[in-house]
Design a protein around this nucleic acid. Structure first.
Ligand SMILES: [Mn+2]
Ligand SMILES: [Mn+2]
Ligand SMILES: [Zn+2]
Ligand SMILES: [Zn+2]
Lengths: 145, 145
DNA sequence: GAAAAAATGCAAATGAGTTGCATAAAAGGC
DNA sequence: GCCTTTTATGCAACTCATTTGCATTTTTTC
C-alpha cells in the first residue's frame, strides 16, 4: 500500500528491532488492500517462509504496541490488522461484511471524525478511534438486480 | 435508561415473544448506564432468578436479530449489548477503556456521522455503524495530577 | 567468544461464544 | 379442558482465535 514507507525505520523509530519475520509481517500488512486477520498474515507468511502461528501473534502485538499497526475489531470474534494512520496514511473508516467477514478501507475523506480528540469532557484519555460501517458487501448480496 | 419504552411492545413489534426471561434481559439493558457483556447480563439476572448462561446468549441473539438491541464490539474479545438506537434513544458513540474494559456511552450530539448512510459508492449495504473511542478511563489513569 | 537479553517454536491452556440434544413451557386446534 | 405442535430453556460438550509457559534458538553486549 505504500512505497514511501521505510518499514525498517518505522519500526526502529518506535524501538522495535526489525527482524526478518517482523519486517515480513509489516510488509504484508503494508501491501494489503484491506486489514488482515492474524490467520491471513500467517498464511501469507507461510507461502515463502517457515514461521510459527504464535510468533505471528506476538509480532502483531509488538507492532500494535509500538503504534505502527492498528488492531481493528469486527463483528466476528477475530481482529484485523493494518498500518496505523501516519503521515502517509490518514485515518479512515472501514466497511465490514457480516457475511463473508471482508473488511474494506473507506476513502479517508468520508467519515472522518470532526475533532482532534477533545479529551476534556470525555470519560478518559483517547488513544485512537474506530469508525466501522457494518452490513453486507455487494459480492454477498443475495439478489443483485 | 428509559421510562418511555414499553419493552413488551418493543419486542412484540419485531415479532419476538416477550417471555419472562427475555423481558428481564431487555429491562436490564434498558436500565444500564453503559452497554453490558453477556456475562454481566447473566450475573445481573442470577441475582433474582434462575437462568442458564446459554439462554442469555440466545436471548441477546434474538434481541439483536430483531433490532431491539445493539451488539457492540470492543478491544477485548467479548461484545457489549445495549438498547439499539430508536426514537427515544439516538445513535451515539462509545468510549472503551482498554484497561478495565468499561464501555461508556457518549452524548449523541458529539461524534455523530455526517451522513444518512450514503450506500452508493460504498462496498456494500450499510446496516449499522459504530464509532468507538479507545483509551484509558480516568479511574484507570496511573498518575492523576 | 562467553554471558545476557531478546526472539522464536511447540504444546497446552484459556474463555467467550456456539451447538446438539433433552426437557419444559407456551400456543393452537378441537 | 385435552392433545398435538411449536417455541423456549437447560445442560454438557464443543469451537476456535488468542494467550501462556517453558524450551530452544538467535542477537546483542561486554
Ligand atoms: Mn484500512
Ligand atoms: Mn450506548
Ligand atoms: Zn461479503
Ligand atoms: Zn478503566
Amino acid at each position: 500500500m505504500c512505497e514511501r514507507c521505510n518499514y525498517e525505520k518505522l519500526m526502529e523509530g518506535v524501538g522495535i528491532r526489525a527482524t526478518k519475520h517482523r519486517l515480513a509481517v509489516l510488509r504484508i500488512l503494508g501491501n494489503a488492500p484491506s486489514p488482515m486477520t492474524a490467520q491471513e498474515v500467517f498464511d501469507a507468511l507461510k507461502a515463502d517462509r517457515s514461521i510459527n502461528r504464535v510468533t505471528v501473534y506476538r509480532i502483531l502485538e509488538s507492532l500494535v504496541e509500538g503504534g505502527v499497526v492498528d488492531k481493528i475489531s469486527t463483528g466476528d470474534r477475530s481482529f484485523r490488522y493494518g498500518l496505523a494512520p501516519n503521515d502517509n496514511h490518514p485515518q479512515h473508516a472501514h466497511f465490514y461484511c457480516r457475511l463473508c467477514g471482508l473488511m474494506t478501507c473507506l476513502p479517508p475523506e468520508s467519515f472522518r471524525l470532526p475533532f482532534g480528540i477533545p479529551s476534556p469532557g470525555l470519560p478518559g484519555v483517547v488513544e485512537k478511534y474506530e469508525i466501522r460501517l457494518d452490513g453486507v458487501c455487494h459480492r454477498c448480496r443475495p439478489e443483485k438486480s
